[in-house]
Amino acid sequence: MAGSGTAHLRDEDDMMIRVENLTVQFPAKGSNVVHAVSGISFDVRCGETLGLVGESGCGKSTTGKALLQLPPPTGGSVQLDGEELTQLSRPEMTARRTDIQMIFQDPISSLNPRRTIGKIVAEPLDVWGPTARDEQWALVASILDAVGIDPEDAKYKRPHEYSGGQCQRISIARALVMEPKVIICDEPVSALDVSVQAQILNMLEDLKAKHGLTLVFIAHDLAVVKNISDRVAVMYLGKMCEISDSDDLYAKPAHPYTQLLMDSHPEPNPDAVIDDTVILGGEIPSPIFPPSGCRFRTRCESADDRCANEEPKMSMISDGHYVACHHPLVEPVS
């Protein structure tokens, strides 16, 4: 569903990220426009982890990249630690990017196969210093060590000599070397095996505590997102459906889309009741011609005329739990 509104934003001083009415559009064939992200708002407190979850094509990666102004959003505001990023000039933004780093989904293709690990992790330092080789190496070695890669061994090795999990550790080291305030993790564990996934998730939690990081964690796996996030935002077709403390969200999903995602999630529990009637679900509509009103209405069981005509706004269900739906599954406290 798609909803807009800013009721869920918290007006407190310790917000690291504050995004308001973020819109990202891309030109499409003819004079059409792809509505990748349409007016979403959220904030992330210092030291907090926000999980962004949704199906492919819901705009969660685009949102992550828009925070970094890659590309600059079509509209809306992105504040990092009180500073408005959308108004910065290119060189100013380049300087600010040291504070906000990104980890990508495919750990192997996000590392240059022709460079050594030592060079890959040191590259940000060539730009921002220190540039002295021995100083650089001391820093790189300490960070590689922190992510569980043997620095002496890695210095002259190249990415193909490492497994997927190790490459993801190296990507994390490269992001950490700038001592960022925020790391945007775009599906960092979805290409990894479960045993390695657990190692990386534990390590992210440790690094977050040690370096005082703020994380934006983008993923499609509900259990992974719940495990690592303090708050979770559910996105659908460029809109935000629901945002809440993660325990609260999983205990009492208020949005029909959140419920659908949870019903589809396979829990490793043989006694779990599965709804085996769903064989053909709706598919996500085209973001070029999104449905009017609530964007989820084409797949929603409780959709009615109101959903087609009026876009739902974010409203409070309980303390810190907001949903954009005309027919929420949990009655709001008024």
């Binding site: 497994s163 999990g165 479960v194 045993s195 390695v196 996934q197 657990a198 190692q199 998730l201 534990n202 939690e205 796996d221 509900l222 259990a223 992974v224 719940k226 495990n227 690592i228 996030s229 303090d230 993660s246 325990d247 999983y250 949870m262 999630h265 829990e267 490793p268 529990n269």
Partner: peptide, 24 residues
């Protein structure tokens, strides 16, 4: 057992420490 423990589960509270399998 290790494989089962290393999976995050929606039934567990947030920030539950996962028991990763060491090594490869």
């Amino acid at each position: 057992q290790s494989l089962f423990w290393s999976i995050p589960k929606t039934s567990e509270p947030k920030h539950t420490r996962l028991s990763a399998i060491v090594g490869r």
